[in-house]
Amino acid sequence: MIEFKLNGEFIPLIQLLKATGLVYTGGEAQIVVTEGEVKYNGEVDYRKRLKVKKGDVVEFRSKKIIVI
């Protein structure tokens, strides 16, 4: 489990995946989101510009990110 401390109101999903080191580039992040590999609060989400906020949980390749 990864705890990500959010500075500000939200972080775009693609930036979150890069900031936590789960993907190397924004392009890679866009691909995994559009292919349905990312879950947002328990549901597969295909939105690249999704605004992730405190309390949200993102899952990707058996890694769980909790935004605090």
Score class of each variant (00 low, 15 high):
M1N: 12
M1K: 08
I2A: 03
E3A: 10
K5Q: 07
L6A: 04
L6H: 05
N7K: 15
N7A: 09
G8P: 09
G8Y: 13
E9L: 13
E9R: 08
I11L: 15
L13A: 03
L13M: 08
Q15Y: 02
Q15K: 13
Q15D: 05
Q15M: 02
L17V: 08
T20M: 08
T20Q: 13
L22G: 05
V23P: 05
T25C: 05
T25H: 02
T25E: 03
E28V: 07
E28I: 06
E28M: 07
E28S: 07
A29D: 07
A29W: 11
A29K: 10
Q30P: 09
Q30K: 15
I31N: 12
I31M: 10
V32M: 04
V32S: 08
V32T: 06
V33K: 12
E35Q: 10
E35A: 05
E37H: 15
E37P: 03
V38C: 10
K39C: 00
Y40M: 09
Y40I: 03
N41G: 03
G42A: 15
E43Y: 05
V44T: 12
V44F: 02
D45Q: 08
D45I: 03
D45N: 12
Y46W: 09
R47P: 03
R47G: 09
R47Q: 13
K48F: 07
R49K: 02
R49G: 10
R49E: 00
K51Q: 04
K51T: 04
K53V: 04
K54G: 05
K54Q: 01
G55Y: 00
G55V: 00
D56W: 03
D56S: 07
V58C: 01
E59S: 07
F60N: 14
F60V: 08
F60K: 11
R61W: 01
R61F: 01
S62N: 14
S62M: 12
K64V: 10
I65R: 12
I66V: 13
I66T: 09
V67K: 11
I68Q: 09
